[in-house]
């Protein structure tokens, strides 16, 4: 008779312990394995969420722990949703979100399309293009403030070179009209490579033989692009939009470093606003309500979007 390692292990187990283990059902063992994950999830995700929702109905201030906490019902929500400042912030966020996504998808896809053509050194180019993504957002924010500098900034000189305007006549971060675009440009510079990589994965997933079949079926390059390339890359593209959308809804570091939310409140995105309410003004109850509103918004939009994404994938 031969013994497998499992048989040997079974034999080596002391009888008392073996009896106890044998008493466990498969279900119990399954619970033992998943319990640590469930505990962690509850501790760092679910509990804070429930606690935040609870706090959002109070006037609690975390810097005044000894004050009486008053139950205020929906007053925090009412104040946020009727506050003009909040809506201005939301608008700034929407502007940032929409334009970064549009620009990054268009440029990212175009770059991926070009890089996907077979030419010498395209791997090297991919590495170079991907470089901005590897930098810290704080570093990127910091050096873009130099690029945007009216007197010495390279950006202003490049614009001046093409338009003939005086480089010192405008300030990307100082101007109320230009600042929202300044953050869009910096974010696009940094994150277009990410969209490009995902699009490239999509393009590489299309087998060459499908283009050959289309070629024999007498489809023009133009028709191949619209009936094969675009539909087959679309799920990847939508995934990129989802990632960038969620990321940029939470955008904080790059913009804080670049404009600090200014001038005025023109580049104060919701996450920056929320941070000020919570940790500068210490209005914990109010900011909790704010956070809940944002959570519901993102969660709702993302769910609708994921449903659409799945539909595209099934097509």
């Amino acid at each position: 008779m031969t013994f497998t390692p499992i048989d040997k292990a079974a034999r080596a187990t002391p009888p008392a312990m073996a009896r106890r283990i044998r008493g466990l059902s498969d279900r119990t063992i399954a619970w033992i394995f998943v319990a640590p994950s469930i505990f962690l999830l509850l501790a760092v995700n679910i509990f804070p969420l429930i606690w935040t929702i609870r706090l959002s109905f109070t006037n609690f201030r975390v810097n005044r722990p000894n004050n009486d906490v008053e139950w205020v019902g929906l007053r925090n929500y009412q104040r946020i949703l009727t506050d003009e400042g909040t809506w201005a912030t939301m608008q700034a966020t929407a502007h940032f979100l929409i334009w970064t996504i549009v620009l990054q998808v268009l440029i990212g896809f175009a770059l991926a399309f070009l890089i996907n053509k077979k030419f010498r050194g395209n791997d090297l180019w991919t590495t170079i293009i991907v470089f901005p993504m590897m930098l810290s957002p704080a570093v990127v924010g910091n050096f873009w403030t130099f690029l945007y500098q009216p007197q010495i900034g390279l950006f202003n000189y490049v614009v001046a070179f093409f338009t003939g305007a005086d480089p010192a006549s405008f300030s990307m971060i100082g101007d109320v009209m230009l600042a929202p675009w300044a953050i869009v440009i910096a974010d696009t510079w940094m994150w277009t490579p990410f969209v490009m990589l995902i699009c490239l994965a999509g393009l590489r997933s299309i087998p060459n033989s499908i283009y050959e079949a289309a070629e024999c079926d007498r489809a023009s390059k133009w028709r191949q692009f619209w009936t094969i390339t675009i539909p087959m890359v679309l799920p990847f593209l939508m995934l990129a939009v989802l990632f960038r959308g969620i990321e940029n809804f939470k955008m904080f570091d790059l913009v804080v470093q670049l404009t600090g939310g200014g001038p005025g409140n023109t580049t104060t995105l919701t996450s920056i606003d929320l941070k000020r309410e919570a940790f500068e003004k210490w209005r914990t109850g109010y900011s909790s309500a704010y956070a809940v509103i944002l959570f519901v918004t993102v969660f709702g939009l993302a769910s609708i979007y994921v449903k659409a994404l799945n539909k595209v994938k099934e097509r």
Binding site: S209, I210, E212, A213, E215, C216, R218, I228, P231, M232
Partner: peptide
């Protein structure tokens, strides 16, 4: 001349169907 200009129809060993289209759309494509 390109494959289109040569006016050939080819059946590929690895099928090479357009995966995102229905059977009908695949047949209509040419």
């Amino acid at each position: 001349l390109s494959p289109a200009q040569r006016d050939v129809a080819m059946v590929f060993q690895q099928y090479s169907l357009y995966p995102h289209l229905s059977v009908r759309q695949n047949l209509e494509f040419p």
